[in-house]
Design a protein around this nucleic acid. Structure first.
Lengths: 239, 239
DNA sequence: CCGACGTAGTGTTCTAGAACACTACGTCAT
DNA sequence: ATGACGTAGTGTTCTAGAACACTACGTCGG
């Protein structure tokens, strides 16, 4: 698999930041110097910096220089609870039923999220979560084959997927990006969840990363009458 | 004020999309043609497309072409306080239309949230938020009479409610509690929002506090095809 | 004292082109 | 039928350089 040079450069700089070789607030060498060090043109180097800026790892300031960004202050730490994850905290009886496994070809959206080629083979796991015996959510997890094949050897009925990834494969989830949409439930999903097709539902799509590596893509459906997102917000005084 | 050419190009394309000259899913001319049309090099044109892709207005697919993306706006629930600001940062034009004011009796749910008696009189404000001229959300705000009467003297078209509360009444919002549900849109809401009754939508209910005092209850409807909630999650290493 | 101006150092925009990589779709051999 | 392969059309990566724009910080004239 061919990796563009600007990706390699971004990765090299990412590593330096992660290892503390470049610390928060520190100014990097100027772009021309960096380009020379990496043996590329200014344009190519700038593509690498573009990537890092989007990741909020650096901060470019016209006329001043390029700086290592301060690690973002996380309100997210308060939001550790995953959308459909630990409902057990609510004191309910949660069980998981594995509906099926599948080896197939990734759809475009999933492949893109996992950083795979669009023809990549993929492992899919479908689970139904029941709270007090009633279906609560339908979850489809997609994994790259390298990861997925090992996961299938585990009993997901008793072991959470997160735990399998962390303990058996050494891939702890460190970061995730989730988007939630309001959709109409399709006939297939409605049947599994035991409700009428077309009812409003949440659809959550989540990519989870172990370090820089995307290890699982989850798509979860939850009927709207069974779930509410709740959030406590505090407003800081802004200067 | 110097505006880079790639910004002008992005703006020109943005306009074509907004005006419906380019519709969702449509393929744009290829990059070499576009570059020629705008009289710039491929690299410059690509910078413009980069901007639009970050704004999720287009979708570039290697080997296939560049397509107008399906409209969808990300709503970062963690950055709630800058809702309007975030949208404008995406280059969208956000306007507010006040549909009406009302003095009436609070419904039980609203009264309870605001800590009022169930027969308490209340002031209601209904606003429609438009993004680039298209209805995006319908918001009903309920305020206790003491607060509401002063609010009604302000022009909510130009001044955010938060700002009125803080600057004119000395009631900065310090805390809020929000719950989000997936619901079917009612006929009245659907009409205001210009979509079909019954489509899936987000319904957000939020109580905002200034110190210990509940000052406003908001209920917002957002059609599901126009919004996605996004969350960035980070998992801490557990010791 | 202090505002105007210049200058060094930095990031930003842009050119003109070449080579590469991915996707769909047809053709051909099996 | 069906699988392998080629090809046209598309987006992607990269080069080598030039000119521009912003910021801080000095120096100079009032």
């Amino acid at each position: 698999m061919r990796v563009p040079r600007y990706h390699r450069i971004a990765e090299a700089l990412r590593e330096r930041i992660r290892d503390g070789e470049l610390t928060a607030g520190e100014r990097l060498p100027n772009q021309r110097q960096l380009a020379h060090q990496f043996g590329v043109t200014l344009m190519t180097l700038r593509q690498a910096l573009e990537v890092l800026e989007r990741e909020k790892l650096i901060d470019r300031r016209h006329g001043l220089g390029t700086f290592v960004a301060a690690p973002s202050i996380d309100y997210d730490i308060l939001a550790l609870r995953r959308f459909a994850g630990d409902l057990t905290a609510l004191g309910e009886q949660v069980t998981t039923r594995v509906l099926g496994n599948l080896f197939g070809v990734a759809d475009r959206r999933v492949a893109a999220a996992l950083g795979l080629g669009s023809r990549a083979r993929i492992v899919a796991v479908e689970r139904l979560r029941l709270v007090d015996g009633h279906p609560m959510s339908l979850q489809r997890s997609f994994l790259p084959p390298a990861v997925g094949e090992d996961v299938l050897k585990s009993d997901l009925t008793t072991t959470p997927l997160r735990q399998v990834l962390e303990l058996k494969l050494g891939l702890p989830i460190t970061r995730a990006r989730e988007t939630v949409a309001a959709v109409r439930l399709g006939p297939r999903e409605a049947r599994e969840l035991g409700c009428a097709a077309g009812v409003p539902a949440f659809e959550s799509e989540r990519v989870s990363y172990s370090g820089a590596r995307a290890v699982v893509f989850d798509r979860v459906f939850i009927p709207g009458d069974r779930f509410r997102i709740t959030r406590e917000l505090t407003y800081e005084q802004q200067a």
